[in-house]
């Protein structure tokens, strides 16, 4: 790449040369998720035009179904950009749905919401403290927490679903609309917007990226990298607990299985979106498209009539392909 730059510079001059140079220097790998999204979208639109893929209802459905993954993945973007991982998000969502449902039937809607968020706050703090203060790898801490959270959720409910009969809650977090727009879409938009601005436009966001990119250099620059690591895991926990309430609202119940396996979808969405698995680079908007791409694939494969085993194979292959295209060098 260096050589080509030099040689173009040497030949110099001309608007078309300049354009060619810009084109060559354009790091298209950063945009592979958007290209991939468009390609897959057009592919399904043509292939499945008779199955109603393009109908407004179906498109809204894709958004709705990916809302929880999108929300979780926004938090995960911070964790991965900081060169850590959070495997506990799926079971945190499950535990949060259960706690929300139980507190809600006992004491009402506000305590219910607070109980759900408290789950994320507590689990996120424990994850963060173990990683940043004791230096235990986040992979292990959150792997253990994955089991603990889902176990607690199953234990306190004796594996029984906890119905939510509060319509306000269900409308607010689930099936309701804000004006003409489905609530789930509004929630994901809020999380994506805040997440994107904070990561790219605040001091905290820059420090997360610097810590993930080169922790030693960040330390030498006076950044408290331990605190940053604590904070990203706390954020991830709280955001996951909010996603749990979205499950609870949409499915009008709390259940320990809600969110199970979401950590993998969220990680896939983040990596597809161009966030480096090794930290230092991250894009929340990319993550949104990563989540949407996964939703798009799921939806298209169902409409195409593949059964769930075939869907898993195709989905896995597409994710590997996309990540392979997006990798450096």
């Amino acid at each position: 790449m260096n050589n080509s730059t030099v040689s173009t510079k040497a030949s110099g001059g001309g608007a078309s040369d300049k354009f060619k140079r810009t084109l060559r220097e354009l790091d298209w790998r950063r945009y592979v998720i958007y290209i991939g999204f468009v390609v897959v979208f057009i592919f399904f639109a043509v292939l499945l035009r008779d199955q109603g893929f393009l109908s407004p209802n179906n498109l809204l459905n894709i958004f709705r179904q990916t809302a929880t993954i999108t929300v979780i993945a926004v938090g995960m973007t911070y964790v991965i950009a900081c060169a850590e991982i959070d495997l506990s998000v799926g079971s945190v969502a499950g535990l949060s749905s259960v706690c929300t449902a139980m507190a809600l039937s006992q004491w009402g809607i506000v305590p219910g919401i607070l109980a759900g968020l408290a789950v994320g706050l507590v689990v996120g703090s424990i994850n963060g403290a173990l990683v940043s203060l004791l230096g235990i790898p986040s992979f292990l801490v959150t792997l253990g927490m994955l089991g603990i959270a889902v176990g607690v959720a199953q234990w306190i409910t004796a594996s029984a679903p906890q119905p939510i009969l509060n319509d306000t809650f269900n409308l607010l977090f689930g099936s309701g609309n804000f004006g003409p727009v489905p609530g789930l879409i509004v929630w994901s938009a809020i999380f994506v917007a805040i997440g994107a601005v904070v990561l790219s436009r605040t001091k905290f966001g820059r420090q997360v990226l610097a810590t993930g990119g080169n922790r030693t250099a960040a330390d030498f620059t006076g950044i408290n990298t331990k605190r940053i690591k604590f904070q990203v895991l706390l954020i991830s926990g709280v955001v996951a607990s909010f996603a749990g309430m979205l499950y609870a609202g949409r499915l009008e119940s709390g259940r320990f299985q809600w969110g199970s396996g979401d950590e993998l979808s969220a990680i896939a969405a983040v990596i597809l979106g161009g966030t480096s698995l090794f930290g230092g680079a991250g894009s929340v908007v990319g993550t949104l498209f990563g989540a949407l791409l996964i939703g798009l694939i799921n939806n298209g494969l169902i409409l195409a009539g593949l059964d769930s085993s075939q869907q898993q194979v195709v989905r896995g292959a597409i994710i590997i392909l996309a990540v392979a295209l997006a990798r450096k060098k």
Binding site: L209, G213, N214, T216, A217, F220, G280
Partner: peptide, 9 residues
């Protein structure tokens, strides 16, 4: 490289 800069940034 190790202590002064975030090379990819």
């Amino acid at each position: 490289r190790a202590q002064g800069l975030v090379l990819d940034h």
